[in-house]
Amino acid sequence: MRSSTSFLALVVVVIFAAYAWPWYNFVQPALLGAPFFYWWVIVWYVIATFLLVTYALMSESRDAGEKQ
């Protein structure tokens, strides 16, 4: 399996682990006054974007490598 494909599998598993079951349904620790339930969801958008961008760039450099 290509390394970028296994990385995507890992990214998907991590993102689903963060969100799919609401184990984050509690109040403390709050961030800027927002209950954990809310800020956990929002902070993970940023982490997920970072992971997905990393994957997108990885798969592009692979494609570029194949063309040469």
């Binding site: 995507l8 990214v11 998907v12 993102i15 689903f16 963060a18 969100y19 799919a20 609401p22 349904n25 209950p35 339930f37 809310y38 969801v41 993970w44 958008y45 997920a48 974007t49 997905l52 994957y55 997108a56």
Partner: peptide, 20 residues
């Protein structure tokens, strides 16, 4: 209440799944 937040909490999963 907080349950309604499900409508936005899935967004990162949507694009992770779409990426596949």
């Amino acid at each position: 209440g907080a349950f309604g937040f499900f409508g936005v909490a899935y967004q990162a999963m949507v694009f992770a799944f779409a990426m596949i």
